[in-house]
Computed example of a mutant assay.
Amino acid sequence: MNDTGGVFQIDMTLERVFDTLTEVPTFPEVVQKALALLDDPMATMADVEELLRYDQAITANILRVTNSAHFGLPQQVSNLQTALALLGTDQIRQILMVSASLPYLSRPLNGYGLTARELWAHAIGCAVTAEILAGELGHGEPSLPFTAALLHDLGKIVLDLHLGIRLEEIRLLVERERLPFDEAEWRVLGADHAVIGYELLHQWNFPPGICRAVRNHHDPDLYVQDDLSAIMALSNILAVSLGMGVHGDSFRYRIAPDLAERLGLSGESLDRCIARSLDAFYAARDLVGLVPA
């Protein structure tokens, strides 16, 4: 009887979590539209400017990045049109995604023992690592791995907000049995933060490939099924192992042989990606300048 009651309670808890997804503020529509324009061969940068010029926060971030020491411009850029021309499409995508994601990734996850800075740094670290892996592998659209990796832990935010004492139960299981959080989540809830993140991104109408990569990134049976999922999984493993925004958990993450085989990465290629990822992580952290205190 107690076991049945416990299962019923877990199911009801998980059901409430799914119900609350509709309460999470939706991903900014202006960013979704701007990303679509950047992918539209018929659209122009003038179309992008016309859309973004009315969003003060995004315009300010674009101008701030353009005027950073990274670009070393002889004079300050004060208008969006010039900034967009100087940045180029890939950098614009990144600034849009980072600006739009900041509200979701700038609060501490107490249930997971993560500060806001750690959460944000891990998201940035995964994103730049995924982009570098995609480039090394010749993936056609490096912006997709970047986006998937930046948003891969959204499910943790939802669980941290709504699970309360059940999340403490998960955390105790992690400490007692030295499990990764995703395994403990499955044991307690019957789902993990990757499943929750998938559902949230699906509701926000993100491309199916991004949703699938977020869903698969902890599941060895699933993340070897397609390149984007494999890149997402490997970028997360590398970011954790390299200490990008996390601590004390790296020993639980190893690169499975079939994951490296799926991507066709040699040891030399992997070492090169790791070195470039660390450089890109520190550069992005300084350049973006949005990491919460």
Rank of each mutant, 00 (worst) to 15 (best):
L290R: 11
L228S: 04
A127G: 03
A213I: 07
R254F: 08
A100R: 14
N205P: 00
A121E: 14
P28D: 02
D219K: 01
G125T: 02
P292T: 09
E199L: 06
T26I: 02
A230R: 08
A256F: 10
A275F: 08
A130R: 07
L151F: 12
M232Q: 15
Q203W: 00
E177G: 02
R176H: 04
D40T: 01
H152A: 11
V77H: 09
H122E: 04
L96K: 02
A127I: 03
F181W: 11
F181K: 05
L73V: 05
A284I: 03
E141L: 01
L189S: 07
G138D: 10
I196V: 15
L14T: 15
E175N: 08
D271W: 01
S277G: 03
V24C: 07
R272D: 14
D3I: 05
A149W: 07
E185S: 11
L259T: 04
S143V: 06
A275S: 11
H70G: 02
M12A: 14
E118W: 05
G88N: 11
D40V: 04
V31T: 15
A256V: 00
L52A: 02
I210F: 12
L278M: 10
Q91P: 00
I165D: 14
E118Q: 15
E141Q: 13
A191H: 07
Q75V: 10
L73Y: 12
L189E: 08
G140S: 15
K33Y: 00
E131V: 03
Q76D: 08
A233L: 09
N67Q: 01
V291I: 14
L263N: 07
M97G: 00
D192L: 01
G164L: 06
N61S: 05
L161Y: 09
P207V: 08
A85K: 12
A69S: 12
L173E: 13
F71G: 02
L242N: 09
F146E: 10
A100M: 06
I62G: 04
Y253N: 07
G197W: 06
M42I: 04
D55L: 07
M232F: 05
T147Q: 15
Q76G: 01
I170Q: 05
A256G: 03
V246F: 02
L173H: 03
E136D: 08
L234R: 09
R93S: 13
D286I: 01
R64G: 00
L63R: 08
D3M: 11
L290N: 02
V7N: 10
A260H: 06
Q75N: 08
T147N: 11
E23M: 11
Q225E: 14
H122K: 13
L200A: 08
R16C: 03
L96D: 12
A60F: 06
Q94A: 04
D160F: 05
H247K: 13
I132R: 02
R254D: 12
A148G: 13
E131N: 08
G155Q: 13
N67R: 00
E23V: 03
N216G: 01
Y253I: 03
D40Q: 08
A230N: 08
S241W: 04
L179G: 06
D160H: 04
L278D: 00
I124C: 10
H139R: 01
Q32G: 13
N2R: 15
Q225W: 01
A46P: 00
A239M: 09
V240H: 04
S106R: 11
Y253W: 13
Y223S: 00
L144C: 00
I210M: 13
I95Y: 07
L52T: 06
V24G: 12
P220F: 02
A284Y: 06
C126V: 00
T82D: 14
E141K: 09
